[in-house]
Write a protein that binds this DNA or RNA. Structure first.
Length: 641
DNA sequence: ACACTGTGAGTTTTT
DNA sequence: CTCACAGTGT
């Protein structure tokens, strides 16, 4: 029973409840992941549940990776492993397996936000409406889809002129998806949902396959996901959900807290376990966090406590500008490292990605190793270019990929020729020749995919496409932008080797799936020992579920954090005014021992200096917990103008 | 067909 | 400031 030894009474109670619905309300740092992994191990080891019958669903890849790692280390050698995946990855697997029943092509493509935005723009082209950006339209559509609305239902429910034109574009967008054999992120869930609803045979098969289901971060569940779970759980209702209402920070993505609050109603006989002891943070940090979240009205009161020591005061630094702030962060980190704190136990958090830039400059200046999470490897142009060849070869319906591939590198196939190509119109002699050559390239790549291991196939795509010609190397060694792009292309081959063990087409399938669904790069590049011990920079959203000894929360200014985005009349999503506060709460509760908060009086934005006002959150902190870093002494010297 | 060049526009947060 | 894009010139 070693896997249960380390649990407290409540955690144990949760881990031992193995049959019937279970709701675990787990405060920040209360050992949520530990509890559910122990429970999974318990199911396997003590209850004799075959690992393959266990499904654990998470919302982010990071969470899935972490849970998989923990489970792997505890499952007795030789046993298979449970299926641990994000909702989207799970959906893709189901849809690939049952593509026929789902009415999808074997090798359907997945469009990321960028692909979708392009398609929206194309859809918008013929229509008059220029008042909305593709992004705005896309987010309206996405929000509607996450509520499981059809275009008709959406138009009916919104009834505005704006909704009307969105619907019109939406219909065109849907027909592009269909004709290109593609799904967007929302479709992955929607199609899984409708497959389960419409096909009893598939539904029953999956219910049988997965006897026990666990959902992590349940507070982030949206309508479609909720229904997928209830289809999967069937009669047995062996569903274990874990969540914390105070950490719901994805309502803009359609996540609805109601599903957490209503779980016991939806699943009668639910056992509820509340985990309130925090093992992560010092008393000081936890008091501050509790004080912040208590200001929210719409929440279930929770009494999160800790037996940890009081620890150090929270340090606050009011900077003159964003460079001064970055300097403060860098010098403080240097001091921390000097006093023995490992760099990889330190994280710098911010509300918006653009803030990382100055921070990077300062860290670089001090020679502090760092890594930025959220640099999306698979969204880089050169990587997408290579993959567009692979995807076009796999899915010949994909105009988007074909168009992209045709232009990288330029080969004399432009807009007009592409149109003719797609419509089957006659081509002039010269154009016909170019097109024939291009088609031949794709079919060579296609057969490489079918015969060689994944990395060989990718290498073939790179060679046949001649994509490297776009980034000519100077006399000097790989440096500058072209060199970096070539390195990324090489890195892609490297990544593909991880799937070389698969039978030929499947390795590529998996690579494409990863490319479509894996957004952060966090685990991708082989972390050599140097890189491994680095300070992490990331958005607060990206930090959810992680913990560090020392946390810096930067840019605490009105309009930035909390973000200003007043219930924009043009937006469909109803904004929850308490969400920013929850986000701040998430930021604070990442810290184990030290917490540093900072703001700048002036910040560069849109290329101009702007005066700012300290965040309202700061005045909500109990002053007894805070110590102000003296602007006159250590850091005041470092102001750059 | 495409490279170049000014213009204008825009930044949440993630699968 | 930076980036995508429309429009111009080759």
């Amino acid at each position: 029973m070693t896997h249960l030894d380390a649990l407290n009474a409540r955690q144990l109670e949760a881990a031992l409840h193995t049959e019937g619905p279970l709701l675990i309300i787990a405060g920040a740092g209360a050992g949520k992941t530990k509890t559910i992994t122990s429970r999974i191990i318990h199911l396997i080891v003590e209850k004799g549940v075959p690992p393959r019958q266990i499904l654990a669903v998470t919302f982010t890849n990071k969470a899935a990776d972490e849970m998989r790692e923990r489970v792997r280390s505890l499952v007795p050698a030789g046993r298979s492993l449970p299926l641990i995946a994000t909702f989207h990855a799970f959906g893709v697997r189901v849809l690939r397996e049952f593509h026929k029943e789902a009415g999808l092509p074997r090798a359907f493509s997945i469009w990321d936000r960028d692909d979708s935005a392009r398609a929206i723009k194309r859809a918008q082209d013929g229509l008059d409406d220029e008042s909305m950006t593709p992004r705005q339209i896309l987010s309206a559509i996405s929000h509607a889809k996450s509520r499981s609305l059809s275009p008709e239902e959406y138009e009916e429910s919104a009834r505005s002129a704006r909704a009307k034109s969105i619907t019109r574009i939406w219909r065109v967008y849907e027909s592009s998806l269909a004709s290109e054999g593609a799904l967007d992120f929302d479709d992955i869930l929607l199609r899984t949902h409708s497959l389960l609803r419409a096909q009893a045979a598939v539904r029953e098969k999956l219910q049988k396959r997965f006897s026990h289901i666990t959902i992590d971060e349940y507070q982030d569940t949206n309508a479609v996901q909720y229904e997928i779970i209830s289809f999967l759980s069937g009669e047995k209702k062996n569903v274990c959900v874990v969540g914390d209402g105070d950490q719901n920070i994805y309502s803009w993505r359609g996540a609805d807290l109601e599903y957490l609050l209503d779980f016991e109603r939806a699943y009668p006989g639910t056992k509820i376990v509340t985990l309130e002891q925090n093992y992560r943070s010092t008393r000081t940090i936890l008091s501050a966090a509790n004080g912040i979240i208590e200001k929210n009205v719409r929440r279930k009161p929770k009494n999160l406590f800790t037996e940890n020591e009081t620890g150090e005061a929270i340090e606050m630094y009011g900077a003159r500008n964003e460079m001064d702030e970055a300097w403060f962060v860098a010098t403080t980190i240097q001091t921390l490292i000097g006093s023995g704190v490992r760099a990889n136990k330190i994280a710098v958090l911010y509300r918006e990605n653009f803030q990382s830039r100055v921070l990077e400059e300062a860290l670089l200046h001090f020679g502090i190793p760092y890594r930025v999470l959220g640099t999306k490897f698979f969204e880089r142009k050169e990587v997408k270019d290579v993959l567009s060849y692979v995807r076009a070869a796999r899915n010949p319906l994909s105009r988007l990929d074909i168009a992209r591939a045709a232009g990288a590198p330029p080969r004399g196939i432009g807009k007009v020729t592409l149109e003719k190509m797609f419509s089957g119109a006659a081509l002039s002699g010269a154009a016909a020749k170019k097109v024939a050559h291009f088609r031949e390239s794709l079919s060579k790549i296609s057969s490489a995919i079918d015969t060689f291991p994944a990395s060989e196939a990718v290498r073939a795509a790179i060679e046949i496409s001649g994509i490297e010609r776009m980034y000519p190397q100077g006399e000097a060694s790989p440096s500058g932008e072209a060199g970096e792009r070539l390195e990324n292309i090489r890195e892609l081959v490297n990544l593909a080797t991880r799937y070389d063990y698969e039978q030929p087409p499947q390795g590529i399938e998996k690579l494409l799936e990863e490319a479509a669904l894996q957004s952060d790069q966090d685990e991708l590049p082989a972390a050599d020992s140097q890189e491994a011990d680095a300070v992490s920079l990331m958005t607060v959203h990206a930090s959810k579920g992680l913990e560090f000894d020392a946390i810096f929360v930067t840019g605490l200014e009105q309009g930035l954090f909390p973000s200003l985005r007043e219930g924009a009349p043009s937006s469909d999503a109803v904004r929850d005014p308490e969400e920013e506060r929850r986000l701040f709460y998430v930021a604070l509760t990442r810290a184990r021992k030290r917490l540093f908060l900072s703001y700048a009086d002036e910040r560069m934005r849109y290329g101009t200096r702007e005066h700012t006002i300290p965040s309202e959150f700061l005045s909500d902190l109990d002053p007894r917990l805070v110590r102000h870093a003296n602007p006159g002494s250590d850091y005041g010297e470092n102001i750059i103008t």
